[in-house]
Simulated scan of single mutants.
Amino acid sequence: MSLREFVIKVPCTSSNIGPGFDVLGLSLSLYLKLHVSVDPSKTGQREPVLSYAGQGAKEAPLNPYQNLITRVALYVLRVNKIAQFPAGVTIHVDNDIPFGRGLGSSGAAVVAGIFLGNALGQLDIPRARLLDYALMIERHPDNVTAALVGGFVGSYLRELSPKDTATTQVPLSEVLPEYPHNASASWGTEPPVPPFGIGHFIRYGWAPEIKVIAIVPHFEVLTAEARSVLPKQYASQDVVFNLQRLSVLTAALARSPPDANLIYQAMQDKIHQPYRKHLIPGLARILASVMPTSHPGLLGICLSGAGPTILALATQDMEQIADTICAEFAKEDITCDVKFLDVTQDGATVEE
């Protein structure tokens, strides 16, 4: 067998998008890339050799049995009766997605790992089936669906049979077990096979005039912490508030030219942002002060995922909008990076 080389490219994502908590996902032009080579002649190299550049390079584990991307890849291989990595795998990761900032870094890593396992095993698993693999690991569909298929998407988890439900609720520690350093072909139990059709999705339209500004503060908000502050029950009027705006927003963002007042009002939320304000200094002030009347060209503003990144949708005056939000964070002694992004339509790709 000859040397194989390929590149896996996964976009970052934003989820929730105002009222669309755990429903809406948006694929954006900031990428996690894997440059992979497989040299079968290196029969003595049984474990992938990893290197990293870019965001998180100092924190990312280089042990393939501890790194999330390669652990996910091994899960895909083992489900398909391939017990270990092929010989001579070298992976260089080039990552532009900040960790722990609400831009889908973990979802991108999961999707990259699934594509890596599919490519290393030459399995030719269809993209729709790959979503099932992703949802065995990342139990919320919004980020992984957007990273997988691209564009502006809505997604949900299907009600499954009791047997399939039990499979999807297998603890993550059993889906991605703590592999020993000397993991071998004979180690471990059989991994749980993903049921078919765990999640479904739909792609919405996106007006070409709408651009995305991501204001990324220099601190992290852990997803587990951001979820822990949410209430267990909601008032019915708050649920209806979000449902009304969600139904309008998905149509409004597809219309050209965009209606700034309609989109701004439809991006309001009462399900997650009010409860996360204290985790992100200055958030309440930012959401209340940056609006179409004060910043022409602005369409809407919201938390990206669990935060702390702020997502602003706009058609013009992008730098002025970004400067205003950064200035509000500066009042809290918080510095930010600003990224001007486009909505990508391709999702994750593999190029030989």
Rank of each mutant, 00 (worst) to 15 (best):
E5F: 04
K9E: 13
V10H: 04
P11Q: 03
T13M: 05
T13G: 05
T13F: 00
S15D: 08
S15L: 12
G18T: 04
P19Q: 03
P19G: 10
V23S: 14
G25W: 05
L30A: 10
K33C: 14
S37G: 00
S37Q: 12
E47P: 05
E47T: 13
V49N: 02
V49Q: 11
L50E: 06
Y52I: 03
G54T: 04
G56H: 01
A60C: 10
L62H: 08
Y65E: 06
Q66E: 15
L68Q: 07
L68G: 06
L68D: 10
T70P: 09
V79Q: 04
K81I: 05
I82M: 09
I82L: 13
A83N: 12
P86K: 08
G88Y: 00
H92Q: 14
V93K: 06
P98K: 02
R101K: 12
G102D: 10
L103G: 09
L103C: 02
V111K: 01
G113A: 04
G117C: 05
A119Q: 14
G121F: 06
G121P: 08
D124N: 13
R127P: 10
A128R: 13
R129Y: 05
L131K: 01
D132E: 10
Y133S: 03
A134D: 09
A134P: 11
L135D: 04
E138V: 06
H140T: 06
P141G: 03
T145F: 13
A146N: 07
A146I: 06
L148K: 09
G150V: 02
G150K: 06
L157K: 11
E159R: 03
S161Y: 05
D164M: 07
S173W: 09
L176F: 03
P177Q: 09
P177A: 09
Y179L: 12
A183S: 10
A185R: 13
A185K: 14
G188L: 07
T189D: 13
T189R: 11
E190W: 02
P192S: 08
F196Y: 03
F196G: 07
F196P: 04
Y204M: 09
Y204D: 08
I210H: 06
A214F: 00
P217S: 09
P217Y: 11
P217W: 04
L222M: 09
T223A: 02
E225W: 00
S236C: 10
V240A: 08
V240D: 01
L243G: 01
Q244A: 08
L249I: 08
T250Y: 04
A252D: 10
P257M: 01
A260Q: 05
M267A: 09
Q268Y: 02
D269L: 10
I271S: 07
Q273C: 11
Y275E: 05
R276W: 14
H278Q: 15
G282A: 01
G282F: 13
L283K: 02
A284H: 00
A284I: 02
R285L: 07
M291Y: 08
H295P: 02
G297C: 11
L298A: 12
G305Y: 00
G307V: 11
P308S: 08
P308K: 09
I310S: 01
L311W: 03
M318H: 15
E319I: 12
D323T: 14
D333C: 02
I334P: 03
D337G: 01
K339M: 10
V343C: 07
Q345D: 12
E352G: 12
